[in-house]
Design a binder for these strands. Structure first.
Lengths: 312, 312
DNA sequence: CCTTGCTATGGAACGCGTTCCATACGGTAT
DNA sequence: ATACCGTATGGAACGCGTTCCATAGCAAGG
């Protein structure tokens, strides 16, 4: 494996000049540039990224913590990060967490060791306080509103979107809204926020039997609908945490020749377009791209991304 | 940021001894170990991974080239890689290609620059010959049978699985089998292999109108069924390239109150279980894990993974 | 002719661990 | 007592670019 010294020797210049030639830092004569180019081509030389990283003190890698891949929220945010990172010549290291706080701590440790230049949490199990404290090891970006914590963040303006959605649902005259969530209010800030906004909009909290937890897929939606169908008093509207989930809910009613209640999904996936269901587009790709930009710029800023209520 | 020299100075030992203590390389007294541990804790010192990588000439990163995420084949293979990599304390760099050969070449270049220790292609646009040639830059693993090319590979034994599937379909008496594919035979070795096995099993190639290309999602399946429904002579069996796709095909017939033709999917996704459809489980997670093991061991070996025909 | 200011180039330090080699010491086998 | 061995430890080289600083040549300005 050729090194910059080999190139320097063969070209008859010093490593310093070769380095400047490669990086177009100026102060290299036409003649030297040409000779160095020729030798580089001859040796099939490319600089060693590890050495470059060491001397520059960075890796051009961002770590992205994701509980798991199989969820549109994560794939969308992740895709946004990926696109922005590619454009900025960064690589993306995918760090799966399964919502395991200790694994997340391991990734913070890797940040400390400079395995990546920044760490983006698309979601998390460890407390925000720990994230905030770990910033001494490097830039950390979360994808939710960090409240009082001084953390960089890119996130959907969920409150506004949910307020608009619930207001619209109420205007339509619905009273007993069924809600699906992936994680309990205890574990998930998003669940808490949704419930709080609901309570605020409707003047009371949703009835416990109208709340379904652990719902993340089409099938989960199907089963949630099945559970509701057994109730005496059924929801007259269902606000679900994803379009595919809404599709699963709908599917249950269709399969059982029941009247499909009015539904709303989230994330503007293909399924809601196909089925003509209203949804909320959180623009998670934008959230991801914004998260990356914060990571690359090392700014501790907040980028709330407006969500769109899509009625059909 | 504390360095190993700081630790050495404060502990009253040399950097060499500190390094040995950290890496448990032996030849460090109890006393020295204790003192060094204490100073490490006091300074909150962790070794700099970049420096370690440079001196060891590796990164503990594997690059994984994926055209896009939104496909069960890729998520399954990728998950297998992720699990195996985590177990081996490697990180995984996700490299999106969109089947763009030049982007793939860019990733080969990064391998050359030692941005990662090995490169896994879950699928590819560039010719195998180029992959084989690029091995001089580092270990490259592909996820298909590389034929005559001396490439490390982990892949599903598709031929055997397809032969079993087609044989079963023929035994059931079906004659006009509809087939869906993601990419044309020209672009995809898998498509070619499926068609060849079909031809071999049925004694003739499938009729062109029974082949649908560009099918990767539930919706694509729905539309493929729609196209078939317009034909005079319709397929009497449909062999699709994914369970969700089969589900989409089925959905079209259900929605239009048509008799659903017998179907077979692939990948043993949840949908085939729910709908009771036969499928082929290619065990792509195993393929991914095997691909990673090849990457980490730097062996140029082939690991064919047996696929299971699941009849229901 | 001299100062000023570029351009061009090289030497050497630097970033930060790892590891080879040499040295020293206490203990054991002969 | 001598040779030998294992443990313990440090010095220094090494991996490989990047970059600061110094030097030198040359042209324009005065």
């Amino acid at each position: 494996m050729a090194t910059i010294k080999d190139v320097a020797r063969l070209a008859g210049y010093s490593p310093a000049t070769v380095s400047r030639a490669i990086n177009h830092s100026g102060y290299v004569s036409r003649q030297a540039t040409a000779k160095i180019q020729a030798v580089i081509a001859q040796l099939d030389y490319v600089p060693n990224d590890i050495a470059r990283d060491l001397s520059q003190g960075r890796t051009a890698n961002v770590g992205v913590v994701v509980p798991y891949l199989a969820h549109p929220y994560f794939t969308q945010v992740f895709n946004g990060i990926l696109k922005a990172a590619f454009a900025a010549a960064y690589n993306v290291v995918l760090l799966q967490s399964n919502y395991d706080a200790d694994r997340e701590r391991g990734y913070l440790e890797q940040l400390h060791r400079r395995a990546f230049d920044a760490l983006i949490f698309t979601s998390r199990a460890i407390p925000l306080a720990e994230l905030a404290a770990a910033q001494k090891y490097g830039p950390i970006i979360c994808c939710e509103d960090p409240g009082d914590y001084p953390l960089a963040a890119a996130y959907s303006k969920r409150t506004a979107a949910y307020r608009a959605a619930f207001s619209w649902i109420r205007t339509q005259g619905y009273q007993r809204v069924g809600l699906t969530f992936s994680r309990s209010a205890q574990l998930s800030a998003t669940t808490r926020l949704t419930l709080a906004t609901y309570t605020n909009s409707f003047g009371q909290a949703p009835a416990p039997e109208n709340i379904r937890l652990g719902v993340t897929t089409f099938t989960d939606g199907y089963q949630a609908a099945q559970a509701w169908a057994r109730l005496a008093s059924q929801p007259d509207f269902i606000f679900s945490n994803g379009d595919d989930i809404a599709a699963g809910i709908r599917q249950f009613y269709v399969d059982h020749h029941l009247l499909v209640p009015p539904l709303m999904g989230q994330e503007n996936q293909l399924s809601s377009r196909l089925l003509g269901l209203p949804t909320i587009d959180h623009h998670f790709e934008r959230v991801g791209a914004a998260a990356f930009d914060l990571a690359a710029s090392r700014q501790i800023a907040r980028v709330p991304v407006a969500a769109d209520l899509i009625l059909r």
